[in-house]
């Protein structure tokens, strides 16, 4: 799966420290890796290993204390808050463990939310949101609020919301953490399909090896460092 073209994402000696002075704690202690367009990467590791911190830095929600983070050749560590927000708006899609949908808001309105910030017209937003919901198999559920949907359906709404902007990268933080095995398999199959059919780069944090098996690359974190980084045959 190695490619000669420039990597989409590159970490060079990324360090992330929390706190200051004596109580300083290093969540990341010099992390290096490259991720190319089209990869499906599972990030694993025990709790406290730094995998969530990596996810936050990758998602431009947090900045490295030192080191370089290149996204599409852009030095993310030099960007300010609003520039990082624009990068998220235009290139990234997020899926969270807790779904993080707006309560008492219909599936359609939840999905169209990122397009509101892109300044699209109402009719364009609705069309795109319907298409995204169809892609995750939720046609007919547009007018249902999250409270009226099952966990698996809510996560599919969240995936539709992440997809609606045609992002370069989909960041999934424990996307199956709140779901039973059957629903988890469905969600993983969906992510896998988005990766293979649409060519979306998927970065996923998980602690379940069964879910990590769907990825074609596995980065294992221990104690703030990459312990293992290997390619594998992805489960279909």
């Amino acid at each position: 799966m190695k490619s000669r073209e420039a990597p989409l994402i590159e970490f060079k000696g990324v360090v992330k420290a929390y706190g200051k002075g004596g109580s300083e704690f290093l969540a990341l202690k010099g992390v290096d890796f490259q991720i190319h367009q089209g990869e499906f990467v599972a990030i694993m590791g025990p709790s406290g290993s730094g995998k969530s911190t990596v996810m936050n830095v990758l998602g431009c929600l947090d900045t490295p204390t030192s080191g370089e983070y290149l996204f599409h050749g852009v030095h993310v560590e030099t960007l300010n808050r609003d520039q990082r927000a624009l990068l998220r708006r235009n290139y990234l899609g997020f899926v969270f463990q807790g779904f993080n949908l707006l309560a008492r808001t219909s599936a359609l309105e939840n999905v169209e939310l990122p397009l509101v910030y892109r300044g699209l017209k109402r009719s364009e937003r609705h069309a795109a949101a319907r298409k995204a919901l169809e892609l995750v198999g939720l046609q007919g559920w547009e007018d249902h609020a999250p409270g009226e949907l099952s966990g698996g359906q809510q996560q599919r709404v969240a995936i539709a919301r992440a997809l609606v902007t045609n992002p370069k990268v989909l960041l999934a933080d424990e996307p199956t953490g709140n779901l039973d095995t059957a629903r988890s398999e469905e969600i993983m199959a969906l992510l896998s399909r988005l990766n293979s059919d649409l060519g979306i780069t998927v970065l996923m944090v998980t602690h379940e090896p069964e879910m990590a098996a769907y990825a074609n690359r596995l980065i294992h974190f221990v104690d703030g460092k990459v312990e293992r980084d290997q390619y594998q045959e992805a489960k279909q």
């Binding site: 609003d82 927000a85 708006r89 990234l92 997020f94 993080n100 939310l113 990122p114 910030y117």
Partner: peptide
């Protein structure tokens, strides 16, 4: 707060 977090993750600017 959580809603604000979601909006920010999605790419809402501070001023928005």
């Amino acid at each position: 707060t959580r809603e604000i977090g979601i909006r920010m993750a999605i790419g809402a600017l501070e001023k928005e």
